[in-house]
Every structure is written in structure tokens, then in C-alpha cells.
Amino acid sequence: MSDLKTEIPKELGIEIGGPGRAYFDDVIVDNLFDAVLEVSAAVWTIRDRQIVLEKVLSEKGIDVSADIEAYVPDEASLEERKTERDEMVARIFKGFMRRPNNATPKSPDAPSLREIND
């Protein structure tokens, strides 16, 4: 059989899952580092979209600054934004859940070697 599986798994990756690695004596420092990194990436992602949005609108001759400040969202829009906001919170703080107190992260000296069972 070919190694190629035509079914595309949605989730894949042993290395990027599980408890991962810890590099500091207190794993909370690792978790905080990951959180800060995710926050900074999220901030940039939003900023980048804002830049693109303003450019697109400007090219169409629309100045939206005043309208944005005055905008009143409806219920559906509020709900949609809440879902996205919750996802962002989960993404930022997932490091803490990956390495709870009873998990033992791999040491930086533990070599990676995948166990093949299939």
C-alpha cells in the first residue's frame, strides 16, 4: 500500500500536540511566554486586517472612521464577535492547559522519535 492516505485528517501532529516541551525551571514561565507570543501574533493579525480594510475602502473613496466610532451592533453581530473573542482567549491561554501540574513535559534533552504502530 502507498503511504498516501486520501482521507485528509483534520488534526495531525504528535509533536505539536500533547504537553510539548518546557525550558524553564517553572513551567508557568513557559506558559506565559506562549501566551505573550500568541497575544502579540493576534494583535498583529488584527492590525494587518485593519490596514488592508482601510486601504480597500480608501481605494473605493469611502472614509469610514466616523461611522466605525458611531456603529451600534445588532444581536447576531454581538454573538459572532463573542465567539471569535472566546476563541482568541482559548488560543492565548491554551499553553496553561497543555501542561497542567500533573503533566511531565519532555525534557529539552529528550530526542524526538515517533513510535510507528500502524
Binding site: 500500500m1 502507498s2 503511504d3 498516501l4 492516505k5 486520501t6 482521507e7 485528509i8 485528517p9 495531525l12 501532529g13 504528535i14 509533536e15 505539536i16 524526538s112 522519535l113 515517533r114 510507528i116
Partner: peptide, 25 residues
């Protein structure tokens, strides 16, 4: 289609999910 990929090549090199061999994408 009968090719058997050796296990040594099926590691998740560089942490890539599924490695080079086990992700159709």
C-alpha cells in the same frame, strides 16, 4: 502503490504534522 515507506522516514521532521510522508497535504 505497493511502495512501503521505511519507518525511519516517517518521523515528524521539523515537527511537521504527519512528517513528509503521512499527510496527503
Amino acid at each position: 502503490p505497493e511502495f512501503v515507506t521505511p519507518n525511519y522516514a516517517r518521523q515528524e521532521i521539523h515537527l511537521q504534522p504527519g512528517g513528509y510522508t503521512d499527510d496527503p497535504l
